[in-house]
Design a protein around this nucleic acid. Structure first.
Lengths: 157, 157
DNA sequence: GTAGATGATTATGTGATATAACTATCCGGG
DNA sequence: CCCGGATAGTTATATCACATAATCATCTAC
């Protein structure tokens, strides 16, 4: 019997193990394109929804605003997106993809989707849907679920 | 339409979002017990399988040996596990839970399992099994899936 | 008995993520 | 009209998770 059998009963543990097994590989897939997970996701939403402001992207991707700054800097310096003064608000920038950015996203997306398909090659389509639905349910429940936990315990070692 | 609809098609993205939504909450559940995710998982395998060596724990939990050292130091200083000289190998230590460690694990485990149950409260039992099976399939496929990816691309920005 | 492998450790680096504080600008009530 | 509080972006910084290289002691195989 595997020594982590007890941990494997926890959905959270399985998520963590799957996540750490996958994230490094995703970064290696994106590296030839000059992208990381975070910058790929930003490029994706900028291509899919041009004109968003940085705060909007922050909300959509759950990336803190300060961390977005450097990511957007890098994408802009690579010539894939541009910051454009927002109409009627001199504080804000609208983010737009460049032509090169759209093309580059299409290429990277192809590689990443091929990789993602391999990840789930052992699963049939209903199983993939069930997996994604389950993950989304957990993601939604996550922040709420800590209410009312037992708060007693001991001091940290 | 949500701006990350394209990303949501990627299993990897959904795993990352669920993971980051859950991990902070897990840590907050464990904090009153003086544990973090990593130290909880080590305590779990030591309680479930006493006598393992540090290298064994490293393999089971996919934690690098160097990182294990401090985790085990903390658990030992808290009086929950002990390093015992391995029979016939003076380099190695066998890890054993103390009585206090077993009791403490039982308490923390209760809180964590209650939390984990809330995470999946929107899912019925078959959906939970499907979720865990899917995660395990992805975890297994993860390291292999990067073979043969398109390696062309551009320089990093 | 020596060479190469292995267990544990130390030191160190990197990436992801969170927080506090700052500047510039917007907006609404007096 | 202008003043105070909110908001957009930025800077600096801290923390945590995770990985690598190098070291020391000991084991094992030849």
């Amino acid at each position: 019997m595997s020594s982590d059998a007890d941990l494997r009963r926890l959905v959270g543990y399985n998520i963590q193990r799957a996540s750490s097994a996958v994230m490094g590989a995703v970064n290696r897939v994106l590296k030839p394109f000059g992208l990381r997970r975070a910058s790929y996701s930003v490029l994706s939403v900028v291509v899919e929804t041009p004109g968003l402001r940085q705060a909007d992207v922050s909300d959509v991707l759950a990336i803190e605003r300060p961390n977005l700054v450097q990511i957007i800097d890098a994408l802009e310096q690579a010539g894939w997106i541009s910051r454009r003064q927002a109409e009627g608000d001199r504080r804000a920038y609208e983010l737009h993809p460049t032509l090169a950015g759209r093309a580059h996203y299409t290429e990277a997306r192809g590689a990443l989707m091929a990789f993602d398909a391999k990840l789930t090659s052992a699963l049939d389509q209903p199983a993939i849907w069930a997996l994604i639905d389950g993950l989304n349910a957990v993601e939604e429940a996550g922040p709420e679920a800590e209410e009312g936990e037992a708060r007693r315990g001991v001091q940290a070692p």
